[in-house]
Amino acid sequence: MTLELTLPTRKDEDFRYSDIEALRSVWPIVTEEIEVAADAEGALEIVETGAGAVARHVAITLGKGAKFDLRVLTAGPAYGRIAVDVKLGEDADFTLGAAQLATGSETLEVVTQVTHAGLNATSAQIIRTVLAGASVGTYLGRIAVERGADGTDAEQSVRAMLLERTATANARPELEIYADDVKAAHGCAVGELDAQGLFYLMSRGLTPPQAKRLMLQAFIAEAFTGAPGEETLSEAALARLEAIL
């Protein structure tokens, strides 16, 4: 049995917040390999809106000057894990926009490993998580900039919104930089809906769930801005939002 086939435990860094019992039901995870040739473009939408446990692992290799647009919506599974490894060659460009919506005792996670292996590659990750009930939402995002990958620009914007105090958000961006002239902006915030904004909206006649839904729609939309399937992704997210609120 290879190492990959052994069910991980929570001692594994990449699985420290996982629902191991649920993971067992979908183990082992088959890695989906994607290669984008030099100067080619690719895109993928991962939409998981079923109720069953799901775990996916996508490994993407971007050749020189290649571009890839990945969008993720996890909204429904009792356990949902989306792991993404990306290796960027020179001048490659990677975009990830991910939204996770959970309620009840659901556990959702996005785990990324973005490796800048060539000069002047750019990556941008936007992760938006909405958590109700006693759900758990996690983002683990490692960015590695290898020796010689000078001129790297790697962005991470990670925000989670807790609708109830009983929900838990974990966010851990990590950076390993072995190159020069690297830009690595990252923002990370866990918060609640702005009470002043909610009152403003309700003072015009919106019900509390409507006001929350409107603000959360805007929050999630940031993950889908500019996506080829922006509209359908937003609609699918909205359907789940309405169920959660």
């Binding site: 002043q196 904004g197 909206l201 015009r204 409107l214 603000m215 939309a221 940031e222």
Partner: peptide, 13 residues
Amino acid sequence: PVEIPGVSFVQFL
């Protein structure tokens, strides 16, 4: 008046 990023006046009203 409160600013609400991402929500258009038209939709809100």
